[in-house]
Design a binder for these strands. Structure first.
Length: 176
DNA sequence: GTTGAGCGTT
């Protein structure tokens, strides 16, 4: 008899219900389209985001699915967790991180180095500094980040084929 | 045809 008081699914603490679900244990071949098909059963989605390895370009085996409604996310989490997808048992939980890390603060967030007083260098020195090496995890200010602004534009494999050397301006490869 | 349980800057 399972008298677990908690849903101890892993090393992380139980995240609070959220419209963002983390999906783990994916097959490398499971695409965002696949996930969209599966998870849109439970409600309208605002986005699906498979995390790819930056080096190999392939899936890291986990993804994030964004629901419009938290109830749908909850239902999806309950139902999709443990389901078999592409031959893998996927695990679904509420995401603990909100979004990809701050897209970019872009500039050094500390004080500019006091440059000997009165230096009138007109160049607005936007130093990127070692910001990216530091713990930007502490800048968790993206509570209500509107995901509609970041529509991804994935380059299509057809694109390179049709890409003309002279004009590469306004091609709109067919969506499908 | 990678095997782990993981949380993201394409």
């Amino acid at each position: 008899p399972m008298s677990n008081r908690r849903r101890h699914t892993g090393s992380r603490a139980n995240p609070d219900p959220n419209t963002c679900l983390g999906v783990f244990g994916l097959s490398l071949y499971t695409t965002e389209r696949d996930l969209r098909e599966v998870f849109s059963r439970y409600g309208p989605l605002t986005g699906v985001n498979v995390v790819y390895d930056q080096r190999t370009g392939r899936s890291r085996g986990f993804a994030f699915v964004y629901f419009e409604r938290i109830d749908d996310a909850k239902e999806a989490m309950e139902r999709a967790n443990g389901m078999e997808l592409d031959g893998r048992r996927i695990r679904v939980d509420y995401s603990i991180t909100k979004r990809p890390h701050t897209p970019t603060p872009g500039i050094y967030m500390g004080r500019p180095t006091h440059n000997g007083g009165g230096g009138s260098s007109s160049s607005g020195g936007r130093r990127r500094d070692s910001f990216y090496d530091r713990g930007y995890d502490r800048y968790d200010r993206y509570d209500e980040y509107d995901y509609r602004y970041s529509r991804r534009r994935s380059p299509s494999p057809y694109y390179s084929r049709y890409r003309s050397r002279s004009r590469s301006r306004s091609y709109s490869p067919r969506r499908y």
